[in-house]
Design a protein around this nucleic acid. Structure first.
Length: 348
DNA sequence: AACTAGCCCAACCGCCGGCGA
DNA sequence: GTCGCCGGCGGTTGGGCTAGT
């Protein structure tokens, strides 16, 4: 909060005192907000009319609700924002008791944070169901505090699982809020539908949770992303720090170069004809964005299922997220020519 | 315990449109 | 027509607070 001060006209700025609040409240409750420019003088406040208006509208008005947004309110915000953009007053009009400033602040913090953390996903045990929501694509500078926002029931899923949902990711980089809308209104719904309709997959997902839970509870902790950044460690695997010179094309590069997302078994990347290795993909940006498959069951099949994938030594914990959290004791299995992304994708 | 990073949010600011003189 | 005032809107700031190191 800014320290209280007076401008050259003697107008006070900065936080409101209780006394000022009382004066403003008493005045408006008695006379109503008839003229903001006159209120401060008549009410005996050394404030600008605009300041009084803001204070009343955002804090003092009895109809203003304070506290966390409910899930329903969040959904409304996401939906309306996706339709109307930064029309805070319009959004606020649909949320009785919420000021536009509050909604604006909410969007600036929560939604943008979500966008920054956009590429991997996490599984969440939720009312007995499994839901899939986006988790973090955290840059190396991300603080552990950001990571700590994952709650205890969030589990990180190998990024390959996210691929099914990334076909619609093309606009993520140009219109970030679409991502959030997509998260809540398409992905979640889509995943519910998909998970419930695919019995084997549902079993698989349940298995993943159990595996991750077991491993995460007792397994070794992956290094924090901040520590990895500090140590210039690009990837952690089975206790060994990987330093690779190979750089997979970043998603932002792909967006810049207008490279289409690989999809449906035609997995290609025009800037680099050889498919990047799984290892390399995990290094930068959202590897999962580049992994695409229409046939998710291939991950649960006998030839090479996700369960096998996990039991090959993949591990996860609850501290970090996205690919950082997934480590492998057999990472060589998934890199290089012997088992490249292409093979991985075409298995089935 | 001290330090750091960054989240949170109240409050400020500039801009714009409406309206009356 | 235009000038100034006012209120509304959206963007930005800055300091408290807190979790992580």
């Amino acid at each position: 909060m800014r320290a209280p001060c007076f401008d050259k006209f003697g107008i006070k700025k900065g936080p409101w005192s209780e006394d000022e609040d009382d004066k403003l409240r008493a005045f408006i409750e008695k006379y109503g907000p008839f003229s903001w420019s006159k209120i401060p003088r008549i009410a005996g406040l050394s404030r600008s009319g605009r300041s009084c208006r803001l204070r009343w509208m955002n804090q003092l008005c009895p109809s203003v609700k304070h506290g966390n947004f409910t899930i329903e309110e969040q959904d409304v915000i996401v939906d309306l924002h996706s339709k109307h953009g930064n029309k805070w007053s319009m959004i606020a009009a649909q949320l009785p008791g919420r000021s536009e400033n509050e909604i604006k602040n909410y969007c600036h913090t929560h939604l943008k944070n979500q966008v920054q953390k956009s590429n991997a996903m996490r599984l969440r045990a939720h009312h007995g169901h499994v839901t899939l929501v986006l988790s973090s694509n955290l840059p190396p500078s991300s603080s552990t505090r950001e990571l700590s926002s994952l709650n205890g029931s969030d589990y990180i899923v190998p990024s390959m699982l996210t691929s099914r949902f990334c076909k619609q990711a093309g606009s993520f980089w140009t219109e970030p809020f679409l991502l959030y809308r997509f998260m809540h209104h398409q992905m979640k719904k889509s995943f519910h539908h998909w998970a419930h309709q695919t019995i084997s997959l549902a079993r698989l997902l349940s298995g993943i949770i159990n595996i991750i839970d077991d491993v995460g509870a007792s397994g070794p902790q992956a290094p924090s992303i901040s520590n990895m950044a500090r140590d210039n460690v690009s990837q952690h695997s089975g206790g060994t720090h990987f330093y690779s010179r190979y750089q997979a094309p970043s998603i932002s590069d792909m967006a810049r170069d207008n490279v289409s997302q690989p999809s449906g078994g035609t997995h290609s990347y025009s800037r680099d004809q050889s498919p990047p290795s799984w290892n390399a993909l995990n290094k930068r940006d959202s590897s999962s964005m580049m992994i695409e498959s229409d046939n998710v069951q291939e991950f649960s099949g006998d030839d090479f299922g996700l369960k096998d994938f996990l039991t090959l030594g993949w591990n996860a914990n609850k501290r970090d997220s996205s690919s950082m959290i997934i480590k492998s004791d057999n990472v060589q299995e998934f890199s290089g020519d012997d088992f490249g992304l292409k093979d991985f994708l075409t298995l089935g």
